[in-house]
Simulated assay, not measured.
Amino acid sequence: MSHVSSQPAHGQSPLRTVQVLGGGSAGSSTHVRSLAAGLVARGVRVTVCAPVEVAHVYGFADVGAQHVTVPRSSDPGSVAALRVACADADLVHAHGLHAALRASLALSGRTTPLVVTWHTRSHAEGARAHLLRLLERRVARAASVVLGTSSDLVERARVRGARDAR
């Protein structure tokens, strides 16, 4: 088993990850807080992009992460704020479909790896179902890796064109 250290080689800065949350459901927000705490403990610089109310409830700064306020909306201002926050990231990890869509737009034209976690299955009917499939396809194809919290979400990501789904 190989060991990858997050400690920088001589003269290099520590690795930096950006965690992107959308609406901040309890499950994904708790997950991000846990990830941030573990990464910070290993010397990784962590930035959490989330609405201000989510950051207050989950206390990302309390575990050593930097918080950047990014509203849940997909308007150009939110995407621009994410683009700035991700400027020097070594990896961006988006949690949920909408956060992943915004992150993929913010990373457009960049080579920064995007990891996406699908925490829950979205459901829609009619025209909204078609739009949902398009969004899922866009996100699945933009991601370096799609992680699903269940086997049906992993399979859904594969069907939508994910290069690597686990």
Rank of each mutant, 00 (worst) to 15 (best):
S2C: 03
H3K: 14
H3L: 12
A9W: 12
A9E: 07
G11K: 12
Q12K: 14
Q12I: 15
Q12R: 11
L15F: 14
V18Q: 07
V20T: 08
L21G: 00
L21D: 04
G23V: 12
S25Q: 00
S25E: 01
V32F: 03
V32G: 06
R33E: 00
R33M: 03
L35F: 09
A37P: 07
L39K: 12
V40Y: 09
R45V: 09
T47G: 15
V48F: 05
V52H: 14
V54L: 07
H56D: 11
G59D: 08
A61V: 12
V70D: 08
G77V: 02
G77R: 11
A80D: 10
A80N: 06
V84H: 03
V92E: 02
A94D: 00
A94V: 13
A99G: 00
A100Q: 06
L101P: 13
L101C: 09
A103S: 05
L107K: 08
L107M: 06
S108C: 15
T112I: 02
P113M: 06
V115G: 06
W118L: 10
G126K: 01
A129G: 06
R133K: 09
L134M: 07
V139I: 12
A143V: 12
S150V: 12
S151Q: 11
E155P: 02
V159T: 03
R160V: 05
R160Q: 06
A165F: 14
R166E: 13
R166N: 14
